[in-house]
């Protein structure tokens, strides 16, 4: 087990280097000229300004040279400077990544809770109304586009009924707590402001639900199918013969046996959530990686684009590793040497 994790950890730097290389190469073969993002339109015809800009941003050097410098800087934690914000990309990312992670984790919690509960209920009460409602819920979740759902729910719950807040991470009039972790829910608590914490949670509900619904659908279908299979196995009969009640039979004996495939899906849904976060963040004015990526792509902000790609890739690698570890923990039959 530990050797397996160690092997995976050793492979990580090479995978990250691969991601860096790919991200770097892809941006350098795109058609767009980054100079248009740096130099104003008027100055583009001024050779002196252009040459100065090229020298300043290293655009006068050859591709291998730029690559070597970039990787060298990356090792010291320097991801270059954004063309648009003129701040270090690493600093921008550090500010925005927690916002996205907070949203994605909340969405995952919503998706997993709803998905697993619905899946268990649908399997236990198969072919009843409960099962049909769960199926419909899953179908809607996976077929309604995030941007439409986000706008529709914002309109109904925030604009019409006013029961949930509008976009943003906090009330517009509130003063954000000093940034420590970047997770608004944690930082508000660290600042000792419980009302602000509730406000942060309040603001998380809609975007997390919008993002989590699709995942809930996928998980509920998977859990239902696996539960049906497990409930027909003989050890379920053993549990009943022992005198176990139905709740214990379903949760302790059946559900635990479906955790392996469920964990896999939950882990791999992370990638979906990270991409889905782009649209959700845009709709809910969420200052995360998604909206940062959109701005960077629009503005041909190459350092930011590469930075976002690398961070996204690393997040993906880490979640996959965690998924595989969870898989091993949940399934004693594949404990690896």
């Amino acid at each position: 087990m530990t050797r397996y994790i160690l092997r995976r950890l050793i492979a990580m730097p090479f995978l990250v280097l691969g991601i860096v290389t790919l991200a770097f190469l892809l941006t350098s073969v795109t058609k767009g000229d980054p100079l248009t993002a740096i130099v104003s339109d008027r100055q583009l015809n001024n050779p002196e300004v252009v040459a100065a800009a090229k020298a300043k941003w290293g655009l006068d050097r050859s591709l291998p040279e730029r690559y070597a410098i970039y990787v060298g800087n990356l090792l010291t934690g320097d991801m270059g400077t954004s063309f648009i914000t003129r701040r270090p990309v690493a600093q921008d990312v550090l500010y925005r990544l927690p916002a996205t992670m907070e949203l994605v984790i909340a969405a995952m919690a919503v998706g997993a809770t709803i998905g697993i509960s619905l899946g268990v209920l649908a399997a236990y009460f198969r072919n009843t109304v409960i099962d049909h409602v769960a199926r419909l819920f899953a179908l809607f979740g996976s077929s309604i586009p995030v941007f439409w759902l986000g706008l529709a729910l914002l309109y109904v719950f925030s604009v019409q009924w006013g029961v949930l807040p509008g976009p943003g991470r906090l009330d517009a009039r509130a003063t954000p707590p000093p940034m420590v972790t970047g997770f608004m829910t944690i930082d508000t608590l660290l600042a000792g402001d419980f009302r602000l914490f509730l406000d942060a949670v309040w603001h998380l509900i809609l975007p997390a639900f919008v993002l989590g619904w699709a995942v809930a659908g996928t998980i509920s279908r998977l859990v239902r199918a696996n539960m049906l299979e497990v409930l027909s196995r003989e050890f379920i009969l053993t549990a009943r013969a022992k005198g176990a009640g139905e709740f214990r039979v379903v949760i302790r004996h059946a559900l635990r046996n479906t955790m392996v495939p469920t964990l896999t899906v939950i882990g791999y849904s992370f990638a979906y959530l990270l991409t889905g976060a782009v649209l959700t963040e845009t709709i809910f004015s969420w200052p995360g990686m998604g909206s940062y990526a959109v701005d960077a792509a629009r503005g041909l902000d190459f350092p930011a684009i590469i930075g976002v790609t690398i961070v996204g890739g690393v997040v993906f690698l880490v979640t996959n590793l965690l998924t595989d570890i969870a898989y091993v923990v949940a399934n004693p039959r594949v404990r690896l040497g």
Binding site: R233, E234, F235, L237, T238, A239, A241, K242, G243, A244, H253, R256, N257, M259, A330, N331, P332, R333
Partner: peptide, 18 residues
């Protein structure tokens, strides 16, 4: 399981694998 107990044919599938 207390007054009346049962055992079954295939002990592998009758035990919870996890």
């Amino acid at each position: 399981g207390s007054r009346i107990a049962m055992i079954f044919q295939d002990p592998l599938s009758s035990l919870n694998p996890v």
